[in-house]
């Protein structure tokens, strides 16, 4: 018999474990956070859908014991949009990566955020393209290195939650592989929030991002998260200088804009009235 925790046993397809991720990869921790958040919310397994795209992050779908669909590169969000609109009673959760979500899938991200469709997007953000071997991504900081940035990366990086919030996402938060409690809470709140939620989760990639950029071991990368991630209340008290190398862990923004399926339901009702008046055809 496989030795595993009750949580993992309840929420994952244990016959597909251990997973394929590298030693020290944060994705395993974050996948457990997602599972814990769903478990804490006591959602019915058959009503939860996990949608993923392509890349290291996308493999999470196959390990989680829900309705799971591993789609094409960058397109997890529009697949999820179709599922949610077709069956609004389903809890649709997208697991994506920094490249999947903001490079090839960037257009879909901003438009899903703009519609405020009630899906939850969890970004396993490892600042690199891991599956293809360490190319720079839209979240690789300028000045750092990748196999396709042999003279240093000159691209500036996206702040994913800021991007989503500016596009209309009504809940954004940041998590890390280190801050498990806060990350589980953020994911839980994001799922419960009745609008488009995005939780950007820093995931250490010691194999490619770490090695290319001399960030040390997985432990060193986790220590960086510990030493630089602070709760919002604490962050607010910091001086501008102190803020330069710190980031907020936990909720970043939230508003009560109505969700898309809710608005669509109202549209259906309006169309019924109009069809009685035989306005068209």
């Amino acid at each position: 018999m496989i030795k595993t925790s009750d949580l993992v046993f309840r929420t994952m397809r244990i016959d597909h474990l251990p997973h394929i991720w590298c030693p020290g990869c944060g994705n395993g921790i974050l996948m457990r956070d997602v599972a814990a958040a769903i478990d804490n919310l006591k959602l019915r397994q058959e009503k939860v859908v996990i949608v993923s795209g392509i890349g290291c992050s996308s493999r999470a779908a196959g390990y989680l014991d829900f309705n799971t669909i591993h789609t094409t590169h960058g397109r997890a969000i529009p697949f999820a949009t179709g599922i949610k609109l077709a069956s609004p009673e389903l809890e649709v959760i997208v697991i994506t990566g920094d490249g999947d979500c903001t490079a090839i899938g960037g257009n879909h991200l901003i438009h899903a955020a703009r519609r405020n469709i009630e899906i939850t997007v969890i970004v396993f953000n490892n600042n690199i393209y891991g599956m293809t071997g360490g190319q720079y991504s839209p979240t690789t900081p300028a000045g750092e290195w990748g196999t396709t940035a042999p003279y240093g990366n000159i691209d500036r990086q996206f702040d994913i939650p800021q991007l989503a919030a500016d596009a209309g996402a009504s809940y954004t938060a940041r998590g890390t592989a280190y801050h498990t409690q806060q990350t589980i809470k953020a994911i839980q709140d994001g799922i419960a929030h009745p609008g488009f939620s995005l939780i950007d989760c820093y995931s250490p990639c010691p194999t490619y991002y770490g090695r290319k950029n001399k960030k040390g071991s997985a432990v060193d990368m986790m220590k960086y998260q510990r030493d630089h991630g602070v709760p919002a209340e604490q962050y607010a008290k910091l001086s501008d200088e102190e803020k330069t190398d710190k980031f907020i862990v936990g909720k970043l923004s939230q508003n009560e804009y109505p969700g898309y399926t809710q608005l669509y339901q109202q549209l259906i009702e309006r169309s019924q009235e109009r069809s009685q008046k035989k306005v068209y055809l």
């Binding site: 496989i2 030795k3 595993t4 590298c22 432990v219 986790m222």
Partner: peptide
């Protein structure tokens, strides 16, 4: 506390923290 060496990939995160 239960350890499962079959799944342990030896990253050392647990010990470090």
């Amino acid at each position: 506390l239960v350890l499962n060496p079959d799944w342990c990939k030896g990253c050392g995160i647990c010990a470090a923290f």
